[in-house]
């Protein structure tokens, strides 16, 4: 199975990755090879098999809706690349 250049570009866009032409070529080839290997799963008859999304039988975990310890906003925001008066600054979203 060979991933086309268009498919590589499409998946990169979905993943918000801006790949260079060189990376597109490299990933196209490498991912095709890995997908071929993954396709060995088609040898398995899984028609009567339940999917397993989790190792343990854990159901939803709830807690009481009460206020918990607050983390200091300043300490958390200190890691932001750009901030202003308690807000995260981002590049302009709407033109005009």
């Amino acid at each position: 199975m060979k991933l086309t250049e268009n498919e590589v570009r499409y998946v990169a866009a979905l993943a918000r990755l801006e790949l260079s032409p060189e990376e597109q070529r490299m990933f196209g080839g490498q991912l095709s090879q890995v997908l071929d290997y993954i396709n060995t799963l088609n040898e398995l008859d899984t028609s009567d098999v339940e999917p397993m999304s989790h190792a343990l039988n854990i159901t939803n975990v709830f807690r009481d809706d009460v206020e918990m310890e607050k983390f200091p906003r300043k300490a958390w925001q200190a890691n932001a690349p750009s901030q202003d008066s308690g807000h995260f600054r981002v590049p302009k979203i709407i033109e005009g």
């Binding site: 801006e18 690349p81 995260f88 590049p91 302009k92």
Partner: peptide
């Protein structure tokens, strides 16, 4: 590139900044 970690400061526009 919004809440923590590296951001490409050169990028213009939000979507282009993400990518």
């Amino acid at each position: 590139g919004v809440k923590y970690g590296y951001r490409d400061m050169e990028a213009e526009g939000l979507s282009s900044m993400y990518c």
